[in-house]
Amino acid sequence: MPLNRIDLSDINHPALLARMVHKLLGKQEGSVPVEDIAKALDISEVRLDRFDGFEGMLLTDTVRSTGCILANISKGHRRARFTVAHELGHFLMERHQLSATTGFTCSTRDMRESREGRQHLRQETQANQFAIELLAPDYLMEPFYSHDPDLRDAQHLMNSLDVSLEACVRRMVERRDEPLAAVWSHNGTVRYFAKGADFPFLNLSRGDRIPQTSAAHRAITNASPGFTQFVEADPHPWTGRSNLELYEQTRVANKGHAVTLLWAELPEDEEDGGLKELGIPGFR
């Protein structure tokens, strides 16, 4: 595998680092061979097993001479692949400070971290950014995009790239041109959300109920697993605004879990960023 850590030195931006790995590796087909990539970049062992108390661990020294990655398999193979990529990001980003004398230990919360802030949170955010850019590069995703956004695309990406549905939905929201947001819920209660840079403020917090006037609420209440079609939605319960068009689509899963994709059509004076100061960042 044509990879050498020397070619990656001094790259501290997580997305650029992952893109350079792909540039050196050349275009792939199907799922990205993350374990092989890690071993080619001086990770001596990748161990997937059931562990208590952590999702991932990187055992290394302060100079990153070599490393060993442990990934918890208890939440599935796809989650473990993301964990391997996450820990590889810690290993390659030389400015990351070890969380212990033996390396890094990462929790379930760290695997979803998307906030900038204190050193630890910033490092976890960057490791997640590296991981998703490595596992789901644009050139592998774009052939699966429909003309319009569709949660079914994320399902197809999940199967092709061997990455979790959540990661594929987040990646779609981030990378497609349309103003998109995704809301994950359990039994009709918001767990967390992700939104693209151009999507307006989401008038939701963790623990809020999904708007009861929404098609998402009806689909979740019906509890029939599968995908709904995109339908027009009242924007006010979702965004606190009435001066935009909003469409929603929901995938209902088992045991009360669901994800709702929101697609906004902004007023003309906002399409070029004219009123972006109104967009208040959401949690996570």
Rank of each mutant, 00 (worst) to 15 (best):
254 N>Y: 00
49 D>H: 15
26 G>W: 13
189 T>A: 12
176 R>P: 06
210 I>K: 04
269 D>Y: 03
27 K>G: 03
127 A>G: 05
20 M>S: 11
129 Q>H: 11
236 H>W: 06
197 A>V: 12
157 L>S: 00
51 F>Y: 14
251 R>V: 05
76 G>A: 08
253 A>R: 13
18 A>D: 00
18 A>Q: 00
180 L>P: 04
217 H>S: 15
26 G>E: 15
147 H>P: 01
44 S>F: 11
30 G>Y: 09
276 K>G: 08
211 P>V: 11
207 G>V: 10
6 I>Q: 11
269 D>G: 06
24 L>C: 11
242 S>C: 12
108 T>C: 08
114 S>R: 07
129 Q>L: 15
195 K>N: 15
241 R>T: 08
247 Y>K: 12
29 E>V: 09
172 M>K: 07
164 S>C: 11
58 L>N: 02
21 V>K: 00
86 H>M: 09
133 E>A: 15
282 G>A: 03
144 F>H: 15
100 A>F: 03
193 F>I: 07
234 D>E: 14
161 L>Q: 15
73 I>H: 13
244 L>E: 04
251 R>T: 00
64 R>L: 04
51 F>L: 12
12 N>E: 10
226 G>H: 11
96 H>W: 00
150 D>W: 11
163 V>K: 00
228 T>W: 03
132 I>F: 08
61 D>P: 10
94 E>S: 15
4 N>Q: 07
53 G>W: 12
148 D>N: 10
8 L>H: 06
6 I>L: 06
2 P>V: 05
234 D>C: 13
281 P>V: 01
